[in-house]
Design a protein around this nucleic acid. Structure first.
Lengths: 342, 342
DNA sequence: CTGAAAGCGCTAACAA
DNA sequence: TTGTTAGCGCTTTCAG
């Protein structure tokens, strides 16, 4: 009753062309032997009738729908939106659709989404695991041989292709830079430690402090969900104290934006009152005054590479997992001033 | 060979529980009569075996995959990313996946994408038509009874549900505001006129000028693709002339961002040298100095309403098309100064 | 070169 | 209450 009952099936085409369904299929998909004349007759009939192959039926036979699933943490994060776009373009070229189903950074939802995709006979998965540790479901997925590429984050003990960036190194470089500018009381605005990138970036932060002989001050580290709103709040919390930090490192672009807003609302100026460096570049980092210094990721390369990895797996390629880690790049702009001069 | 060949089918479950496939199905989907004891036996067997219904097979029978297609103009535009997120949430609640396939503002691609979705027996469509006029394919889709909701833009002669905003009114209000501040040479940065919203927003611009007795100066209107990069270029073109405009109205947030960058690169300051109003609010409109005055759309309402419309259609509801048009709201911030004072 | 027939996994008449 | 059977639309042996 709902619709889409166009109803022109292979049977109709075959009948119209006076051949069997088998022959019609051969003509339409050009395989096997078909007489030239017969073939054209079939194709014409198909055109005339407006035949469109039923991909669900094809999928039932082949066991696979020409769809790939993408499970990001949050599609509204420009980082994932960009990757979604790039993936879509790549898969489209190969006749595959991209089914996007966000985990909303919730492990249970991630499990549910993955289950749901599997029952759809999706061909493969591109996943940004929301948890670095709670991931038996992913291990299982990989074990069962499902084509799978991890992106942005890897999950412990999962053997499969992955494409990530050097989170620790990037974070370290950022904090080193802050230290080089004379800062010692450097706050960190991070997201939940369950998340792989959060752990690595935190490690980089710690490492930088340590190698400069600065003790880690737990009270300078604040956890927040990765949204502008939450980050604003967390920033205000961080800077409300008397002996407030002189610098802030934020672990993703949404948080950087939240920090900007939070600091502004407190009347704190950058870089005069607070030096700021953020992980992940964003469109508007160059709009603010001053422009924001960031750790940039090679975002344009991540999606295409992940897509090509998955496509190779879909083509049946059997090689050991490839684990690519891209370097990051510190883009110095104007949000950090030397502590003394400021 | 590729995988996902878990291979536990209903048949296996039935065998394990010593019942027929029909009974197993009844127990699992709880319909028809099944003995209590039998039912639990089946359910247990299913659990034990890790049975997962094959939704492709179900779809072949029912003729419909529990997936809805979303065809935005560009998933990287935060406007569409937000809507994609909201749609996903709504459809997930109803057990439906969301297949996102961008038209990239290209009619041919839109047609191809729609064809592809149809051959997948997708249940329904949420579409932002890329062309206001070249849309016979959409008319056809609607005629054939495919559940369809148009979003952000409507297409001529298509009878179906739609959810849009008052583009003309919003644009008019923006330009009125500029005029009220003494501006007369008001430039327009718009996207291709093929796009519905572009037409309407242009009409609003014209209408405002006209009702204040200001002649339309074609040289003040520039067309650009809706990306930050293109908009930068277009802005520079617009403001490179001697008698440059004193104000600028941009028709979407990506263009507004491009305009900001373009003006900055020319050393023009806002609102001193140029007054600026943009259509569509964006995250960072409040980060800039000054903050940007915009025409805000009730974006949080669009996705959920469109989803509920489509869901009702999927449920078989037969009522005349509903065409909702939300009002916009001028959010005055600091990017416009009175012409004389400036 | 072409056709007949089987079967992918599931559901729904219809029988029993 | 349960089983039998047919068939969704397609592809692919296997005969002819």
């Amino acid at each position: 009753m709902p619709a889409t009952r166009k109803g022109v099936t292979l049977k109709d085409v075959a009948a119209a062309a006076n051949v069997s369904r088998a022959t019609a299929a051969r003509a339409l998909n050009s395989y096997g032997y078909v007489g030239d004349e017969t073939a054209t007759r079939v194709v014409e009939a198909a055109d005339r009738l407006g035949y469109r192959a039923n991909r669900v039926a094809q999928a039932l036979r082949s066991g696979q729908l020409p769809i790939v699933g993408f499970v990001p943490g949050d599609i509204q994060n420009p980082f994932f939106a960009r990757i979604a776009h790039d993936l879509e373009v790549e898969f489209r070229k190969q006749g595959h659709g991209l089914l996007i189903s966000s985990s909303e950074e919730n492990v249970e939802q991630e499990k549910a989404v993955l289950e749901s995709l599997r029952s759809l006979s999706i061909r493969g998965f591109i996943l940004a695991p929301t948890s670095a540790t709670d991931n038996r479901h992913i291990v299982k997925l990989a074990r069962e041989g499902a084509p799978l590429v991890l992106i942005d984050r890897v999950a412990k003990d999962v053997r499969c292709d992955s494409v990530v960036v050097d989170n620790e190194g990037g974070a370290r470089e950022a904090v080193d830079y802050l230290i080089a500018n004379g800062h010692r009381r450097i706050a960190l605005l991070r997201d939940e430690s369950r998340i792989f990138t959060a752990q690595e970036r935190f490690a980089g932060y710690q490492g930088a402090l340590q190698s400069h002989g600065i003790a880690l001050d737990e009270t300078l580290v604040t956890v927040s969900r990765s949204t502008v709103e939450h980050a604003i709040e967390a920033t205000i919390r961080l800077f409300s104290r008397r002996d407030r930090p002189t610098a802030l490192f934020t672990v993703d672009s949404l948080m950087t934006q939240g920090a900007l807003l939070g600091l502004r609302s407190m009347g704190l100026t950058i870089p005069h009152d607070v030096a700021l460096v953020g992980f992940d570049d964003f469109n508007l980092a160059t709009f603010t005054d001053p422009q924001i210094t960031v750790v940039a990721q090679p975002i344009a390369e991540i999606g295409p590479l992940a897509a090509s990895f998955l496509l190779e797996r879909l083509a049946g390629q059997k090689i050991p997992p490839r684990n690519v880690r891209f370097p990051t790049r510190l883009v110095v702009r104007g949000s950090v001033a030397p502590l003394n001069k400021a």
